[in-house]
Amino acid sequence: MALMVTNPTINYSFVKEAKSKFRSWIDDLLITSWKACQDTDVLIESPSSICGIHIAEKLQIPYFRAFTMPWSRTRAYPHAFMVPDQKLGGAYNYMTFVAFEAGYWKGTAQQINRWRVEDLGLPKTNLANMKQANVPFLYNMSPVVFPPPVDFPEWVTVTGYWFLDEGVTYDPPKALTDFIKKAKDDGKKLVYIGFGSIVVSDPAKLTRAICKAVVEADVRCIMNKGWSDRLGTKTGVEVEIPPEVYNAGAVPHDWLFPQLDAAVHHGGSGTTGASLKFGLPTIIKPFFGDQKFYANRVDDMGCGVGLKDLNYKTLAKALKDVTTDARIIAQAKVVGEKIRSENGVQKAIETIYTQMEYAHRLSLSKSIGIQLPEENDVEDSAMENFEDSWLLV
């Protein structure tokens, strides 16, 4: 995480540092994954795990990918790790996926091919032979948040979120329920602020900025202070928390969020999905990876605010906006209603069974030469005639 925070976009320095830090870890990942997948009938994995497509080829089993951010080539969105500050159009968006695939493979190809030969008994491979663009893909995001682009092939499906129901068994401390009750009795807007377990250079400064912004915006806050100082020097300074802020730590989203008026977080896919599911106006301060993509989506949907810089002034203004702007509040409710009407898990199950035979044939094709449909090439003909503005979401 420290590597990602210090390199918020994928660039040469990121790749170089990642190779030096994770070479031995990747070797271990490949070996242990192969052992773990013995006697597997179907393999579903995050594409960032790099090994499943090769294991499925060896075992000749159906293989699916599932992920929480854009990973399939499209002109509609850029790759989640290569989101620019301004929209640059369909050609740029498509290029980011090609560039990322090439860079990701270049950084791991030597280790993967050695593992294929020595452990799997397979020949060396390359990007063309892996046929990654043909793999059936499940995106566990709402089509409201991630509308399926028109240039996605038929084997790529946006299913809806796969939510966990954790709040059913949660027993909240009395201090937390008392804080929530007092905020409502006082007629104050109640917000959640949490940035997961991100690492920052000065966590005390971040905590002070949040507390000051909460007081400035005249709201009450339930804070999940998970950020750490692994990037900087430990100061040992404890920040005094004002009475307007309750430091709750981790609380199940599905228990807490229905009782709130807004949420502030880092823009992780799960947290974004949870805040939008319950119709909360959402403020996202991205730090790395797909978080910038989700900050842009919240802005584009009109149900929240994406923050480029986080200080007490910008946060205080954003808190006031999302708790008082009728347009943002109304749009967040509409988004929430749509997401709650979906059943992402059921859609995923149906898709897996529908695509099972195709996924199986794809794994078989790499050794016995079955002819499969090529990657969707529509953009090379008719798609060129469309305006980029029509393709952008």
Rank of each mutant, 00 (worst) to 15 (best):
T272K: 09
R65N: 03
D39G: 03
N311C: 12
F81M: 01
G304A: 11
K277F: 11
A175T: 13
A56H: 00
T354D: 15
T6R: 11
W390M: 12
F22L: 14
N134E: 10
A91Q: 12
V305K: 01
A332N: 00
N343S: 12
K234W: 12
D119E: 15
K181H: 14
Y161F: 15
G52L: 03
E45L: 07
D28S: 15
S363A: 15
D185T: 12
R114W: 06
L29A: 10
L280Y: 02
N11L: 02
Y139N: 09
R65H: 06
F195H: 01
P242F: 06
P242G: 04
G89P: 10
F179T: 07
D321E: 15
D186L: 13
K124W: 04
V298H: 05
K174T: 14
V83Y: 01
V305S: 08
K188C: 09
S389E: 14
T74W: 09
G369A: 07
P143G: 06
F81V: 05
P47F: 06
Y246A: 08
A91D: 13
P62G: 09
I329G: 07
M95R: 09
I284T: 00
P70A: 02
V305E: 05
A382Y: 09
C51K: 06
F287A: 04
F163E: 12
A250M: 14
D39Q: 14
F137L: 12
P123K: 06
L30H: 01
F146K: 02
D380R: 11
K16Q: 10
G306C: 09
P147E: 02
S48F: 07
K308F: 11
R297A: 05
C221S: 12
Q60I: 13
V305G: 08
K234D: 12
E101G: 01
S365V: 08
N93C: 07
K21E: 08
H253W: 08
P147G: 00
S365T: 00
D309Q: 12
Y312E: 15
M82Q: 12
Q86M: 09
F293V: 04
S389V: 13
W71R: 00
K58V: 04
S201F: 06
R297Y: 04
K338N: 05
A295P: 02
